[in-house]
Structure formats: structure tokens, C-alpha cells
Design a protein around this nucleic acid. Structure first.
Length: 564
RNA sequence: CGGGGCGUAGCGCAGUUGGCUAGCGCGCUUGGUUUGGGACCAAGAAGCCGGUGGUUCAAAUCCACCCGCCCCGACCA
């Protein structure tokens, strides 16, 4: 490919609306352009990167025996209502009315569609197991699209779905996908950590997220340096030892104190000169419409995923001020467990060992001090409902843990029968008995791989691509394209590489050398072959390695061997 | 959805105490000189100053409403 016949609009300056490194560089290198918030056009170089990535994905999926399909993005709402996700997804699901006044939705993921398809087409145990996958555009009306293509409303996803006869089969299918994922991310050059994860709205028990550590990551993960245990912050269990405290009650009576305008832990803590870990935070939630109170230590945060799992509810949301008033008798910010009636109360394990703590009094501008368990209120349900912190220890080995931010590039789930049961995806066994299929699902954010890679691999000059996902492996840079002899030699070098199956871009622009070097560095081709009058007399070229900056003067025939 | 910021040529920006024909750099077109790390000279083209309404003799500039974009938070596979 020749530069002048392509479309590579590089930018010299940082676009004003880009902040994240990958976003800036993808814009500057001419890979993408924004159409509207969360929707991006891919320009030729961007498309080539995506194709490289999807090529690797296809190879690894096929290698594990998965079979490619292509499902519609345009879907009827009925299947979503059948599984209950029409409501669970809420505004994230993009809906509209078509010309015949029927409602349509745009697929945010495809469990419903694939399960309906399989329910119709697969009947016998002989057809199982099967794993189907597709690479397709997904639509999610994200409340806040961010960081270019890292979080967009429209994005490309590879999604796979496995169907098995039993749990053992699922375990096997799951393992295959897990292995494929590790291979894919490693081939794409990503430093990626698989972590135990929460299944979220997908449902199911076992789940892994594939995380790329980065400052712009929106997910937090914990890592244990000692035993290599890694988990998402959402999923990480808190070891019970971390909750042990030796506090003994002094026997002081419970007392109401006036605490005006202190609806937050920080304010109360400051006013009463009491550390947050000496306080109990009471949050009122609505779980499928019922009020519940969640109690955690003042310095901890409620992990809604854990709470949701404990309650086994579909929709969990913080109660609004009015219903808090109704449930507790006090305004928002002053809730407490003492005297709380008709509200189910779940307390985090860490409260068990506390004594003489501070809580809200369920009255405006009032808190209670010297509060003690059992004496002042009783807790029926104890659970691990808080987020792990860096002060906690590894849930596996008890060693110190580290919190890191990361970009989620892949997520796998063992779904079980959640979808097959409702959508009637069943098979007949050898004896003619009917069973629901056991499902797994597996997603990869294709554009996210590109962006996450750039987040990890750039320098002051631009992107540093690895050969497997670079838009072109080599750029042939002619220092003076107006010079006929130079250009003729460059064409020769270019054709030669092309004939040898090497993906090469010839920068035939009649611009000054500096501009062309800068652009080559910015886009980040792994290798630059520089054709100049310095070496043409010996019929030699200069080879530059983008990552190392290493240069060598070689003949054109030596290039293929040098760029392995 | 709450808080903050921004919107002037393709890109980056200045102009915003109301005042003449809206400017600078880059890019683009033409001609010339240059040619190894974002050259130079000359001549050009390119703007509903985000939109609507208002105040005024006069609005990019003041006021109101709306739209769009970015960041923080909430939310999120």
C-alpha cells in the first residue's frame, strides 16, 4: 500500500477532547475519529489493527473447536422480557419503535438470541457439546462513554457461547475458552491478568475477568504478590481474620448526641473526634422493592455485588430520601440500627468485634454514642458485604495484597441453565429424557484490546506496535520522494517485501524527511526501512526498530531475516 | 443524573470591559527555493464565532433558553 493512495490523517497536535493516552494516540495516528459521544469511525489504519486482532481471535477460537456465526444486532424485545433482562438492563438497552410501530432493541450481548437459536436447532445429545461465537457490533447506552474507544456506546465484541450436557462438560468447554483467551491476549502483546470476578447481570457462579493494568482502568483488582491470587475488587472475599477486633465495651450507657449537619461519616467523625473505624454506617437499600438495612464499619464501603448475591435479589438500589424516612423514621444520613423495626438488617462481619461505636439515631441531626451489639440492637444476619481494602490480607494465603486499576478486555462466565431453562434450550439424552443445556459465555472487547495495548505501549513519539497487531509491519520511508532514483529504489524494496508476504506501507509523500519520520514513529510501525541518498550508491537501506531505536545499514535482501 | 470545564476555518488557539472588513500558528491550493527529525518566501481558498430568542444605534463579546463535547462523581458485562 502506498501512503498517497491511502487515508492516514495524522495530527500534529493533541485533540482538545482527548485525555487518555490511547485516545490521543489513536486520534493523532489517524486510526479513529469521533462521530458523537461513544461512537467512533475507524479509518484504514484502525481497521487494519482491528482485523489483525480479530484474525488472532478467530484462529484461537477455531483452534478450540468453536464455530463462527453472525447474529442480528436488531432484536425483538420479547426474548429480553422472557429472561427478565429487559428490566434489569433498563436504559442501557437501546430501544426504538419501527415503522410498523413495533418496539425493537439493539443487542448489548447475545445470550437471548443464541439460546433461542440453539433451542430451535439443537435437540440431541449427539450435537453437544458445541461452542458458537461471533464478532459483531454491540450497543449499550452507557451513562458515560469515556476515554475514546475504551468505553463507547457502540463497540465490537467477540462473544462465544458454549452448550453442554452437564457441569463436567461445561468445565471442559470453559477451560478451552479460558486457554484461548490467555493465548489471544498474549499474542496481542498485552500484559493481561485473569482474575476471579463477579458475574453481575449475566448470572452464574464462576466468572473470570481478563484485566490489563492501567491508570485509566475503570475496574479495580487485587493482587497477592505471594501466592499470585488475583480477583476483581467486586468479587474478592474478605478473610474473616481481617474482621477480628479485640474491642471491649466500657459499659457506658448509650447516649444521644446532637450532631447538626453531619450526614456524612467524615463530618460526624470530625465533629465527635471519633475515627471512622469506630462508627457503623447504616445504608438503606431497596431490594426488589423491599427495604433492607446494610451495616458496615464507617471506613468500609458496601459491596453491592456481594449484598445482591447474599440477598439473591434482582434489583438492588439505594433507597430514596423519602422511603428512608418511611423506613427509619429519620432523614437520610442519620440512619442507625438501634430501634430499627420492620427492616431486614444485614451486618458486615467486621462489625462483630466492635464496641462502643457511633451510629445514626434515626432522628435529624442526632447520633448515638456508646452503642453496643446485643445490648442495644440485635443482628440476625451476618455476611461479608463490604469491599476488600488494601489493609486486608489475601483471601487465599493471608499475605499482603495490592490494589490496582485495570481495563477489562475479556470476561468469561459459567452460566449454567439460567438462559436455557427460560428459553427452552433442551436436549434429549440417550434414554429420551429432556434436560436443559448447560451454558457458558465468553466475551472479548476487540477495540478495547487495541486501546489497552496502546495504554501499555507508547512513548513520547507515539505508539509502539508489536508485529502481530500492527497496521503494517514495515514502513518504507523515502527521504526524498521527488528524487527519481531514490523513489525507483524504494519501489523496488517495497515490491520485494510485498512479494515476500510482508505487510508494508510505502511512504511516497513528497514531504520532508522529518515529517515522514515523525509520522512513522507516531503510528508506530514496528520497523522503518529508510531509503536515502546516503546509502543508495551501495544499494543499501537503513532499518530502524521502533521499540529499541536500533538502526542498521543492510541490503534489501537482508530485511526479511532482520524483522522476524 | 449531580458537579466542573469547553464550543471562533480541517486541527490547535487568541479575540469576550459591546465598536470598523474576525485574527494567529499548523494544514490545504498555486509558484519558487529547500530536502535525514514536524523548512522558507510569495500569492490564494477556506468562518451562519454551536443554535434560537432577547437587550442595543451596534453582539463572537451582554442576558435567557437549548444543543453538543470533555473531565470528576453516580452508574456500568
Amino acid at each position: 500500500m502506498k501512503w498517497t493512495k491511502y487515508l492516514i490523517p495524522t495530527l500534529k497536535e493533541t485533540p482538545q477532547d482527548a485525555e487518555a493516552k490511547s485516545h490521543i494516540l489513536m486520534m493523532r495516528a489517524g486510526l479513529i475519529r469521533r462521530l458523537s459521544a461513544g461512537a467512533y469511525s475507524y479509518l484504514p489504519l484502525g481497521v487494519r489493527v482491528l482485523e489483525k486482532i480479530t484474525g488472532i481471535i478467530r484462529q484461537e477460537m477455531n483452534k478450540q473447536g468453536a464455530v463462527e456465526v453472525l447474529l442480528p444486532a436488531l432484536q425483538p424485545p420479547e426474548i429480553w422480557k422472557q429472561t427478565g433482562r429487559y428490566d434489569i438492563l433498563g436504559d442501557v438497552l437501546i430501544k426504538f419503535i419501527d415503522r410498523s410501530k413495533r418496539e425493537c432493541v439493539l443487542g448489548p450481548t447475545h445470550e437471548e438470541v443464541i439460546t433461542s437459536l440453539v433451542a430451535n436447532e439443537i435437540r440431541s445429545y449427539k450435537q453437544l457439546p458445541i461452542t458458537l461465537y461471533q464478532i459483531q457490533t454491540k450497543f449499550r447506552d452507557e451513562p458515560r462513554p469515556r476515554f475514546g474507544v475504551l468505553r463507547s456506546k457502540e463497540f465490537i465484541m467477540k462473544d462465544a457461547y458454549s452448550f453442554d450436557r452437564d457441569i463436567a462438560g461445561l468445565d471442559e468447554s470453559y477451560k478451552k475458552m479460558y486457554d484461548a483467551y490467555c493465548a489471544i491476549f498474549s499474542r496481542c502483546g498485552l500484559d493481561c491478568i485473569p482474575v476471579e470476578a463477579d458475574a453481575g447481570f449475566m448470572g452464574g457462579d464462576v466468572s473470570h475477568e481478563f484485566m490489563v493494568p492501567s491508570d485509566v482502568g475503570e475496574d479495580a483488582i487485587i493482587i497477592c504478590a505471594a501466592c499470585k491470587y488475583a480477583a476483581s475488587k467486586e468479587a474478592a472475599a474478605v478473610k474473616s481474620e481481617n474482621n477480628e477486633q479485640t474491642a471491649k465495651a466500657k459499659g457506658e450507657p448509650i447516649k444521644e448526641v446532637k450532631t447538626p449537619d453531619t450526614s456524612t461519616i467524615e463530618k460526624v467523625s470530625k465533629l465527635l473526634k471519633c475515627p471512622p473505624e469506630q462508627m457503623v454506617k447504616t445504608l438503606i437499600y431497596k431490594a426488589d422493592g423491599n427495604h433492607i438495612a446494610a451495616l458496615v464499619r464507617g471506613d468500609h464501603d458496601v459491596n453491592e455485588a456481594k449484598l445482591k448475591r447474599f440477598l439473591k435479589c434482582e434489583i438492588l438500589e439505594l433507597a430514596d430520601p423519602k422511603s428512608i424516612q418511611d423506613a427509619t423514621g429519620g432523614p437520610i444520613g442519620f440512619s442507625g440500627p438501634v430501634g430499627l423495626k420492620n427492616v431486614r438488617m444485614i451486618a458486615d462481619n467486621s462489625i462483630m468485634g466492635m464496641a462502643d461505636f457511633v451510629t445514626g439515631a434515626n432522628k435529624k441531626d442526632m447520633h448515638l454514642i456508646n452503642v453496643n451489639l446485643d445490648r442495644d440492637f440485635k443482628v440476625q444476619e451476618w455476611a461479608d458485604i463490604r469491599y476488600i481494602t488494601e489493609k486486608d490480607t489475601c483471601p487465599k494465603c493471608g499475605g499482603p495484597i495490592q490494589l490496582k486499576f485495570a481495563i477489562e478486555v475479556g470476561h468469561t462466565f459459567k452460566l449454567g441453565t439460567k438462559y436455557s431453562k427460560v428459553l427452552n434450550a433442551v436436549y434429549l439424552d440417550e434414554k429420551g429424557a429432556e434436560h436443559p443445556m448447560i451454558m457458558g459465555c465468553y466475551g472479548i472487547g476487540v477495540n478495547r484490546i487495541a486501546a489497552a495495548y496502546i495504554e501499555q505501549n507508547n512513548d513520547k513519539d507515539g505508539i509502539i506496535w508489536p508485529s502481530p497487531i500492527a497496521p503494517f509491519k514495515v514502513a518504507v520511508v523515502v527521504v526524498n520522494a521527488a528524487d527519481k532514483d531514490l523513489m525507483a529504489f524504494a519501489e523496488e524494496v517495497y515490491k520485494d517485501l510485498q512479494d515476500k508476504g510482508i505487510e508494508v506501507l510505502l511512504d511516497d509523500r513528497e514531504d520532508r524527511a522529518g515529517i515522514k519520520f515523525k509520522d512513522a514513529d507516531l503510528i508506530g510501525f514496528p520497523y522503518q526501512v529508510i531509503v536515502s541518498d546516503r546509502h543508495i550508491k551501495d544499494r543499501k537501506v537503513e532499518l530502524k526498530n521502533r521499540r529499541t531505536g536500533e538502526r542498521s545499514i543492510i541490503s534489501k535482501d537482508e530485511i526479511p531475516a532482520k524483522i522476524q
